[in-house]
Design a protein around this nucleic acid. Structure first.
Lengths: 198, 198
DNA sequence: CCTACCGATCGGTAGG
DNA sequence: CCTACCGATCGGTAGG
Protein backbone atom coordinates (compact mmCIF):
# COMPACT_ATOMS: atom_id res chain seq x y z
CA UNK A 1 0.00 0.00 0.00
CA UNK A 2 1.53 3.31 -1.07
CA UNK A 3 1.96 6.04 1.48
CA UNK A 4 0.58 8.60 -0.98
CA UNK A 5 -2.47 8.05 -3.12
CA UNK A 6 -2.20 8.23 -6.91
CA UNK A 7 -4.12 11.49 -6.83
CA UNK A 8 -1.62 13.01 -4.44
CA UNK A 9 1.25 11.91 -6.65
CA UNK A 10 -0.49 13.40 -9.67
CA UNK A 11 -1.06 16.65 -7.82
CA UNK A 12 2.57 16.87 -6.75
CA UNK A 13 3.66 16.22 -10.31
CA UNK A 14 1.34 18.96 -11.56
CA UNK A 15 2.74 21.41 -8.98
CA UNK A 16 6.29 20.52 -10.00
CA UNK A 17 5.58 20.99 -13.69
CA UNK A 18 3.78 24.30 -13.23
CA UNK A 19 6.60 25.71 -11.14
CA UNK A 20 9.19 24.32 -13.57
CA UNK A 21 7.50 25.92 -16.58
CA UNK A 22 7.31 29.27 -14.80
CA UNK A 23 11.00 29.17 -13.89
CA UNK A 24 12.02 27.90 -17.33
CA UNK A 25 10.17 30.77 -19.02
CA UNK A 26 12.55 33.10 -17.17
CA UNK A 27 15.82 31.17 -16.76
CA UNK A 28 15.53 28.73 -19.65
CA UNK A 29 15.05 24.97 -19.71
CA UNK A 30 18.72 24.45 -18.91
CA UNK A 31 18.42 26.93 -16.07
CA UNK A 32 16.19 24.45 -14.29
CA UNK A 33 17.95 22.64 -11.47
CA UNK A 34 16.58 19.81 -9.37
CA UNK A 35 17.76 21.38 -6.14
CA UNK A 36 16.20 24.80 -6.79
CA UNK A 37 12.78 23.56 -7.86
CA UNK A 38 12.79 20.93 -5.11
CA UNK A 39 13.28 23.60 -2.48
CA UNK A 40 10.46 25.69 -3.94
CA UNK A 41 7.92 22.87 -3.91
CA UNK A 42 9.04 21.37 -0.61
CA UNK A 43 10.78 18.23 -1.79
CA UNK A 44 14.31 16.97 -1.49
CA UNK A 45 16.40 17.10 -4.61
CA UNK A 46 16.23 13.35 -5.09
CA UNK A 47 12.57 13.31 -4.25
CA UNK A 48 11.93 15.57 -7.21
CA UNK A 49 14.40 13.83 -9.50
CA UNK A 50 12.57 10.58 -8.84
CA UNK A 51 9.62 11.86 -10.85
CA UNK A 52 11.71 11.88 -14.04
CA UNK A 53 14.24 9.58 -15.63
CA UNK A 54 16.74 12.34 -16.34
CA UNK A 55 16.99 16.09 -16.71
CA UNK A 56 16.16 15.75 -20.40
CA UNK A 57 13.07 13.71 -19.55
CA UNK A 58 12.11 16.45 -17.10
CA UNK A 59 12.54 19.13 -19.77
CA UNK A 60 10.32 17.18 -22.17
CA UNK A 61 7.63 16.90 -19.50
CA UNK A 62 7.83 20.65 -18.88
CA UNK A 63 7.45 21.31 -22.62
CA UNK A 64 4.37 19.08 -22.68
CA UNK A 65 2.90 20.97 -19.74
CA UNK A 66 3.64 24.36 -21.35
CA UNK A 67 1.94 23.12 -24.52
CA UNK A 68 -1.22 22.40 -22.57
CA UNK A 69 -1.09 25.88 -21.05
CA UNK A 70 -0.71 27.45 -24.49
CA UNK A 71 -3.56 25.36 -25.85
CA UNK A 72 -5.87 26.38 -23.02
CA UNK A 73 -4.83 30.05 -22.99
CA UNK A 74 -4.74 30.72 -26.72
CA UNK A 75 -6.38 28.00 -28.83
CA UNK A 76 -9.30 27.20 -26.51
CA UNK A 77 -9.98 30.80 -25.44
CA UNK A 78 -9.84 31.82 -29.09
CA UNK A 79 -12.50 29.27 -29.97
CA UNK A 80 -14.72 30.18 -27.06
CA UNK A 81 -14.65 33.92 -27.77
CA UNK A 82 -15.28 33.71 -31.50
CA UNK A 83 -18.72 34.80 -32.69
CA UNK A 84 -20.58 36.08 -35.73
CA UNK A 85 -18.77 39.41 -35.59
CA UNK A 86 -15.43 37.94 -34.60
CA UNK A 87 -13.79 35.43 -36.91
CA UNK A 88 -11.75 32.69 -35.25
CA UNK A 89 -8.47 34.15 -36.48
CA UNK A 90 -9.30 37.45 -34.75
CA UNK A 91 -10.38 36.00 -31.39
CA UNK A 92 -7.33 33.72 -31.46
CA UNK A 93 -4.99 36.67 -32.02
CA UNK A 94 -6.61 38.47 -29.08
CA UNK A 95 -6.12 35.48 -26.80
CA UNK A 96 -2.56 35.21 -28.07
CA UNK A 97 -1.87 38.85 -27.24
CA UNK A 98 -3.24 38.27 -23.74
CA UNK A 99 -1.03 35.21 -23.32
CA UNK A 100 2.02 37.32 -24.17
CA UNK A 101 1.06 40.53 -22.38
CA UNK A 102 -0.46 39.31 -19.13
CA UNK A 103 1.88 37.37 -19.21
CA UNK A 104 0.60 33.83 -18.58
CA UNK A 105 4.16 32.63 -17.89
CA UNK A 106 6.20 35.03 -15.75
CA UNK A 107 8.98 35.10 -18.36
CA UNK A 108 6.62 35.71 -21.28
CA UNK A 109 6.14 33.21 -24.08
CA UNK A 110 7.61 29.89 -22.96
CA UNK A 111 8.23 28.68 -26.51
CA UNK A 112 9.97 31.80 -27.75
CA UNK A 113 12.47 31.39 -24.93
CA UNK A 114 12.83 27.63 -25.40
CA UNK A 115 13.30 27.93 -29.16
CA UNK A 116 16.10 30.47 -28.87
CA UNK A 117 17.81 28.35 -26.21
CA UNK A 118 17.69 24.99 -28.00
CA UNK A 119 17.56 25.89 -31.68
CA UNK A 120 21.23 25.01 -32.18
CA UNK A 121 21.36 21.82 -30.10
CA UNK A 122 20.32 18.56 -31.70
CA UNK A 123 18.24 16.20 -29.65
CA UNK A 124 14.76 15.36 -28.42
CA UNK A 125 14.24 18.72 -26.70
CA UNK A 126 14.80 20.68 -29.90
CA UNK A 127 12.62 18.19 -31.76
CA UNK A 128 9.76 18.77 -29.32
CA UNK A 129 10.03 22.56 -29.67
CA UNK A 130 10.19 22.31 -33.46
CA UNK A 131 7.11 20.10 -33.45
CA UNK A 132 5.21 22.60 -31.33
CA UNK A 133 5.96 25.42 -33.77
CA UNK A 134 5.11 23.26 -36.79
CA UNK A 135 1.74 22.39 -35.26
CA UNK A 136 1.02 26.02 -34.42
CA UNK A 137 1.98 27.21 -37.92
CA UNK A 138 -0.33 24.62 -39.45
CA UNK A 139 -3.23 25.55 -37.20
CA UNK A 140 -2.90 29.30 -37.79
CA UNK A 141 -2.43 28.78 -41.53
CA UNK A 142 -5.69 26.82 -41.65
CA UNK A 143 -7.54 29.59 -39.81
CA UNK A 144 -6.06 32.30 -42.02
CA UNK A 145 -6.54 30.35 -45.25
CA UNK A 146 -10.32 30.09 -44.87
CA UNK A 147 -11.14 33.48 -46.33
CA UNK A 148 -8.03 33.90 -48.46
CA UNK A 149 -8.03 34.30 -52.25
CA UNK A 150 -4.65 32.86 -53.14
CA UNK A 151 -3.36 29.43 -52.34
CA UNK A 152 -0.51 29.64 -49.82
CA UNK A 153 -1.88 32.88 -48.37
CA UNK A 154 -2.69 31.09 -45.11
CA UNK A 155 0.89 29.94 -44.70
CA UNK A 156 2.22 33.41 -45.41
CA UNK A 157 -0.20 34.94 -42.90
CA UNK A 158 0.81 32.41 -40.25
CA UNK A 159 4.49 33.14 -40.84
CA UNK A 160 4.00 36.87 -40.44
CA UNK A 161 1.73 36.55 -37.40
CA UNK A 162 4.17 34.34 -35.53
CA UNK A 163 7.02 36.71 -36.44
CA UNK A 164 5.16 39.70 -34.97
CA UNK A 165 4.15 37.77 -31.83
CA UNK A 166 7.73 36.65 -31.20
CA UNK A 167 9.13 40.14 -31.59
CA UNK A 168 6.33 41.64 -29.48
CA UNK A 169 7.26 39.15 -26.77
CA UNK A 170 10.97 39.90 -27.02
CA UNK A 171 10.46 43.65 -27.02
CA UNK A 172 8.12 43.53 -24.00
CA UNK A 173 10.54 41.36 -22.04
CA UNK A 174 13.55 43.47 -22.96
CA UNK A 175 11.68 46.60 -21.87
CA UNK A 176 12.16 50.27 -22.61
CA UNK A 177 9.91 50.41 -25.67
CA UNK A 178 6.49 51.94 -25.06
CA UNK A 179 5.36 51.70 -28.70
CA UNK A 180 5.62 47.93 -28.96
CA UNK A 181 2.01 47.08 -28.13
CA UNK A 182 0.45 49.50 -30.60
CA UNK A 183 2.90 48.68 -33.38
CA UNK A 184 2.26 44.97 -32.96
CA UNK A 185 -1.50 45.56 -33.09
CA UNK A 186 -1.21 47.63 -36.25
CA UNK A 187 0.84 44.88 -37.89
CA UNK A 188 -1.54 42.13 -36.80
CA UNK A 189 -4.61 44.02 -37.99
CA UNK A 190 -3.03 44.47 -41.40
CA UNK A 191 -1.87 40.84 -41.60
CA UNK A 192 -5.28 39.36 -40.81
CA UNK A 193 -7.22 42.12 -42.54
CA UNK A 194 -9.38 42.86 -39.50
CA UNK A 195 -8.95 45.22 -36.54
CA UNK A 196 -7.60 43.28 -33.57
CA UNK A 197 -8.39 45.88 -30.92
CA UNK A 198 -11.54 45.20 -28.99
CA UNK B 1 59.64 45.57 -20.40
CA UNK B 2 56.62 43.44 -21.15
CA UNK B 3 57.15 39.95 -22.49
CA UNK B 4 54.39 40.50 -25.07
CA UNK B 5 54.03 43.60 -27.18
CA UNK B 6 50.83 45.64 -27.04
CA UNK B 7 50.00 44.44 -30.52
CA UNK B 8 50.28 40.83 -29.44
CA UNK B 9 48.02 41.47 -26.47
CA UNK B 10 45.50 43.17 -28.73
CA UNK B 11 45.62 40.27 -31.16
CA UNK B 12 45.07 37.73 -28.39
CA UNK B 13 42.16 39.74 -27.10
CA UNK B 14 40.64 39.87 -30.58
CA UNK B 15 41.02 36.10 -30.94
CA UNK B 16 39.39 35.55 -27.56
CA UNK B 17 36.44 37.82 -28.38
CA UNK B 18 35.87 36.30 -31.83
CA UNK B 19 35.86 32.78 -30.44
CA UNK B 20 33.67 33.88 -27.50
CA UNK B 21 31.08 35.49 -29.78
CA UNK B 22 30.96 32.38 -31.97
CA UNK B 23 30.42 30.10 -28.97
CA UNK B 24 27.91 32.48 -27.34
CA UNK B 25 25.83 32.57 -30.53
CA UNK B 26 25.33 28.82 -30.05
CA UNK B 27 25.44 28.22 -26.30
CA UNK B 28 24.40 31.63 -25.02
CA UNK B 29 26.37 34.29 -23.15
CA UNK B 30 25.95 32.37 -19.92
CA UNK B 31 27.11 29.23 -21.67
CA UNK B 32 30.54 30.84 -21.99
CA UNK B 33 33.05 29.44 -19.53
CA UNK B 34 36.60 30.64 -18.95
CA UNK B 35 37.99 27.11 -18.95
CA UNK B 36 36.36 26.10 -22.24
CA UNK B 37 37.33 29.19 -24.23
CA UNK B 38 40.79 29.23 -22.67
CA UNK B 39 41.42 25.69 -23.91
CA UNK B 40 40.24 26.61 -27.40
CA UNK B 41 42.53 29.62 -27.75
CA UNK B 42 45.53 28.03 -25.98
CA UNK B 43 45.50 29.92 -22.70
CA UNK B 44 45.09 28.82 -19.10
CA UNK B 45 41.77 29.60 -17.48
CA UNK B 46 43.28 32.35 -15.36
CA UNK B 47 45.28 33.64 -18.29
CA UNK B 48 42.04 34.29 -20.12
CA UNK B 49 40.18 35.59 -17.07
CA UNK B 50 42.93 38.14 -16.60
CA UNK B 51 41.72 39.96 -19.70
CA UNK B 52 38.44 40.84 -17.99
CA UNK B 53 37.38 42.02 -14.57
CA UNK B 54 34.57 39.49 -14.23
CA UNK B 55 32.38 37.20 -16.29
CA UNK B 56 29.88 40.05 -16.71
CA UNK B 57 32.65 42.32 -17.98
CA UNK B 58 33.62 39.57 -20.40
CA UNK B 59 30.03 39.27 -21.65
CA UNK B 60 29.85 43.02 -22.22
CA UNK B 61 33.08 42.90 -24.22
CA UNK B 62 31.67 40.05 -26.33
CA UNK B 63 28.50 42.06 -27.01
CA UNK B 64 30.62 45.00 -28.12
CA UNK B 65 32.59 42.76 -30.45
CA UNK B 66 29.39 41.21 -31.88
CA UNK B 67 28.07 44.70 -32.48
CA UNK B 68 31.10 45.56 -34.58
CA UNK B 69 30.59 42.36 -36.58
CA UNK B 70 26.94 43.24 -37.21
CA UNK B 71 27.88 46.77 -38.22
CA UNK B 72 30.47 45.52 -40.71
CA UNK B 73 28.35 42.67 -42.07
CA UNK B 74 25.01 44.45 -42.37
CA UNK B 75 25.23 48.24 -42.04
CA UNK B 76 28.50 48.77 -43.90
CA UNK B 77 27.86 46.17 -46.60
CA UNK B 78 24.39 47.65 -47.09
CA UNK B 79 25.89 51.09 -47.66
CA UNK B 80 28.57 49.83 -50.02
CA UNK B 81 26.15 47.86 -52.20
CA UNK B 82 23.50 50.56 -52.56
CA UNK B 83 23.28 52.23 -55.97
CA UNK B 84 20.90 54.14 -58.22
CA UNK B 85 18.73 51.06 -58.76
CA UNK B 86 19.03 49.79 -55.20
CA UNK B 87 17.82 51.98 -52.32
CA UNK B 88 19.76 51.73 -49.08
CA UNK B 89 16.89 49.94 -47.32
CA UNK B 90 16.97 47.22 -49.99
CA UNK B 91 20.72 46.65 -49.99
CA UNK B 92 20.69 46.65 -46.19
CA UNK B 93 17.98 43.98 -46.10
CA UNK B 94 20.03 41.86 -48.51
CA UNK B 95 23.14 42.15 -46.35
CA UNK B 96 20.98 41.35 -43.30
CA UNK B 97 19.64 38.21 -44.96
CA UNK B 98 23.20 37.14 -45.74
CA UNK B 99 24.23 37.76 -42.13
CA UNK B 100 21.44 35.45 -40.96
CA UNK B 101 21.63 32.81 -43.67
CA UNK B 102 25.37 32.38 -44.17
CA UNK B 103 25.42 32.51 -41.11
CA UNK B 104 28.10 35.00 -40.05
CA UNK B 105 27.97 33.63 -36.49
CA UNK B 106 27.79 29.81 -36.30
CA UNK B 107 24.68 30.01 -34.11
CA UNK B 108 22.89 32.52 -36.34
CA UNK B 109 22.04 36.02 -35.18
CA UNK B 110 24.02 36.74 -32.03
CA UNK B 111 21.56 39.34 -30.78
CA UNK B 112 18.43 37.27 -31.26
CA UNK B 113 19.99 34.61 -29.03
CA UNK B 114 21.30 37.12 -26.48
CA UNK B 115 17.98 38.96 -26.24
CA UNK B 116 15.99 35.81 -25.52
CA UNK B 117 18.54 34.73 -22.93
CA UNK B 118 18.77 37.99 -20.99
CA UNK B 119 15.45 39.71 -21.59
CA UNK B 120 14.17 38.79 -18.12
CA UNK B 121 17.33 39.50 -16.12
CA UNK B 122 18.01 43.01 -14.98
CA UNK B 123 21.53 44.31 -15.25
CA UNK B 124 24.15 45.77 -17.53
CA UNK B 125 24.08 42.87 -19.97
CA UNK B 126 20.39 43.26 -20.68
CA UNK B 127 20.88 47.04 -20.92
CA UNK B 128 23.57 46.57 -23.56
CA UNK B 129 21.36 44.25 -25.61
CA UNK B 130 18.39 46.61 -25.32
CA UNK B 131 20.56 49.50 -26.46
CA UNK B 132 21.72 47.56 -29.49
CA UNK B 133 18.13 46.87 -30.56
CA UNK B 134 17.08 50.47 -29.92
CA UNK B 135 19.91 51.74 -32.10
CA UNK B 136 19.08 49.27 -34.87
CA UNK B 137 15.38 50.16 -34.79
CA UNK B 138 16.22 53.83 -35.05
CA UNK B 139 18.60 53.30 -37.97
CA UNK B 140 16.19 51.10 -39.94
CA UNK B 141 13.29 53.47 -39.22
CA UNK B 142 15.31 56.35 -40.65
CA UNK B 143 16.10 54.40 -43.82
CA UNK B 144 12.50 53.30 -44.23
CA UNK B 145 11.05 56.70 -43.43
CA UNK B 146 12.83 58.43 -46.29
CA UNK B 147 10.32 57.54 -48.97
CA UNK B 148 7.29 57.09 -46.73
CA UNK B 149 4.08 59.13 -46.96
CA UNK B 150 2.84 58.96 -43.39
CA UNK B 151 4.65 59.99 -40.29
CA UNK B 152 5.56 56.98 -38.16
CA UNK B 153 5.65 54.70 -41.20
CA UNK B 154 9.39 54.29 -40.80
CA UNK B 155 9.01 53.03 -37.24
CA UNK B 156 6.29 50.59 -38.28
CA UNK B 157 8.43 49.30 -41.14
CA UNK B 158 11.41 48.83 -38.82
CA UNK B 159 9.28 46.93 -36.31
CA UNK B 160 7.97 44.55 -38.95
CA UNK B 161 11.34 44.04 -40.61
CA UNK B 162 13.05 43.13 -37.36
CA UNK B 163 10.16 40.78 -36.50
CA UNK B 164 10.55 38.91 -39.78
CA UNK B 165 14.34 38.75 -39.47
CA UNK B 166 14.12 37.34 -35.94
CA UNK B 167 11.61 34.68 -36.92
CA UNK B 168 13.57 33.83 -40.06
CA UNK B 169 16.61 33.33 -37.84
CA UNK B 170 14.72 31.19 -35.32
CA UNK B 171 13.10 29.06 -38.00
CA UNK B 172 16.39 28.44 -39.81
CA UNK B 173 18.15 27.47 -36.59
CA UNK B 174 15.32 25.22 -35.46
CA UNK B 175 15.32 23.53 -38.85
CA UNK B 176 12.79 21.38 -40.67
CA UNK B 177 11.10 24.23 -42.52
CA UNK B 178 12.06 24.54 -46.19
CA UNK B 179 9.68 27.42 -46.93
CA UNK B 180 11.20 29.84 -44.43
CA UNK B 181 13.56 31.62 -46.81
CA UNK B 182 10.97 32.33 -49.49
CA UNK B 183 8.27 33.35 -47.00
CA UNK B 184 10.64 35.76 -45.29
CA UNK B 185 11.58 37.28 -48.66
CA UNK B 186 7.96 37.72 -49.64
CA UNK B 187 7.25 39.48 -46.34
CA UNK B 188 10.30 41.71 -46.59
CA UNK B 189 9.53 42.71 -50.17
CA UNK B 190 6.03 43.73 -49.16
CA UNK B 191 7.21 45.58 -46.03
CA UNK B 192 9.77 47.69 -47.87
CA UNK B 193 7.74 47.91 -51.09
CA UNK B 194 10.57 46.67 -53.26
CA UNK B 195 11.66 43.17 -54.37
CA UNK B 196 14.50 41.99 -52.17
CA UNK B 197 15.64 39.11 -54.37
CA UNK B 198 18.63 39.89 -56.50
C1' DC C 1 50.38 34.40 -17.90
C1' DC C 2 50.99 30.17 -15.07
C1' DT C 3 49.71 26.42 -11.22
C1' DA C 4 47.07 25.46 -7.49
C1' DC C 5 43.60 26.18 -4.83
C1' DC C 6 38.68 27.96 -2.73
C1' DG C 7 33.53 27.25 -1.92
C1' DA C 8 29.38 26.49 -4.49
C1' DT C 9 26.56 23.98 -7.47
C1' DC C 10 25.52 20.71 -10.96
C1' DG C 11 23.12 15.85 -12.47
C1' DG C 12 22.97 11.52 -10.87
C1' DT C 13 23.03 7.37 -7.71
C1' DA C 14 23.41 4.14 -3.57
C1' DG C 15 20.94 2.58 0.10
C1' DG C 16 17.26 2.63 2.91
C1' DC D 1 10.67 10.16 -0.65
C1' DC D 2 14.78 10.83 2.37
C1' DT D 3 20.12 11.49 3.55
C1' DA D 4 24.50 11.13 1.97
C1' DC D 5 27.49 10.74 -1.24
C1' DC D 6 30.05 10.70 -6.29
C1' DG D 7 32.89 13.19 -9.98
C1' DA D 8 32.68 17.25 -12.77
C1' DT D 9 32.53 21.99 -13.49
C1' DC D 10 31.73 26.67 -12.33
C1' DG D 11 33.72 31.84 -11.29
C1' DG D 12 37.14 33.67 -8.81
C1' DT D 13 41.66 34.38 -6.32
C1' DA D 14 46.42 33.76 -4.07
C1' DG D 15 50.99 33.76 -5.15
C1' DG D 16 54.52 33.84 -8.15
Amino acid sequence: MPKRTLDQVRETRETVLRRSADVASVNGLDGLSFSQIAAEVGLSKSGLAGYFESKTDWQLAVIGYARSVFRESVIDIGRESSNVNTPLIVSTCRAWLDYIELPVFPGGCFFAAAAAEFDDREGVVRDAIRGTYAQLRKYIAALAGRDADEKGAGEQTAFELIAVMIYLNQSLRLGGDHQTGSMARRSISRIIGHPVDK
